[in-house]
């Protein structure tokens, strides 16, 4: 797997919103509860999960209880803040409109714990803004050629925000990166944002 490490100006990460929305992979022990996976392994604070993440899906099903729902290997965890609209409200964790969903609510399943698993993470809205620095700091995996090709043909503004880059551990010029064809099956990506404000 090829790796790309970027150092960028502050606030640059929101340019990756389509990636956060479509989902990226992280390595984790699985067969454990959502809380175990997110808070014990991936650095999400308990308080943040309980209060800020108001809408949460496991494999496309809304979750009400993060301590009971078990994350399987290859599972997809989607994290979002509270949503507007009637339907948005019906998906809120343990909300009183939950019965509007009918039968799609996620129930607890028996899964065996596996240390070498992978979980797909999708981050939406303010949760993407707030959790993406942590995930990208640890490193994520972008899987699939079309997904990797997100980086191809990006605007000058997009690349201008990058201050330094390493491809497979070797320094690479941002200009070279711009010309690169991202025809990779899988790419490991880390991004460290500068702590200083971006220039206007």
């Amino acid at each position: 797997m090829i790796t790309l490490d970027l150092k960028t100006e502050r606030g640059w990460l929101r340019k990756l919103n389509p990636i956060f929305g479509a989902g990226f992979w992280v390595k984790a022990a699985v067969g454990l509860s959502i809380r175990d996976v997110l808070c014990r392994q991936l650095g999400v604070a308990d308080d943040y999960l309980d209060n800020r993440v108001q809408t949460l899906f496991l494999d496309g099903k809304p979750v009400d209880d993060v301590d009971r729902a078990i994350v399987p290997d290859g599972g997809v965890l989607t994290l979002s803040a509270a949503m507007p609209g009637l339907v948005g409200a019906t998906f809120r964790k343990g909300g009183h409109l939950a019965p509007m969903r009918g039968s799609i609510t996620c129930a607890a399943e028996d899964e065996t714990c596996e240390l070498d698993g992978r979980v797909k993470i999708k981050l939406f809205n303010v949760v993407a803004r707030e959790l993406s620095p942590g995930f990208l700091g640890m490193g994520i995996i972008i899987s699939g050629q079309p997904e990797c090709q997100f980086f191809e043909g990006r605007s000058t503004k997009f690349w201008n925000g990058c201050q330094a880059a390493k491809l497979d551990g070797r320094n690479i010029d941002i200009e070279q990166l711009r010309e690169l064809s991202f025809e990779f099956e899988e790419m490991g990506l880390t991004v460290i944002e500068d702590s200083a404000e971006a220039s206007p």
Binding site: F57, G60, P84, K122, N125
Partner: peptide, 23 residues
Amino acid sequence: PVTGEGLPTYGTNVLTNVISEAG
């Protein structure tokens, strides 16, 4: 958080990802 943050920042279209995810 919805009226003070989510809606002003992303508009109602903030629902697209979530509703699609929910199937």
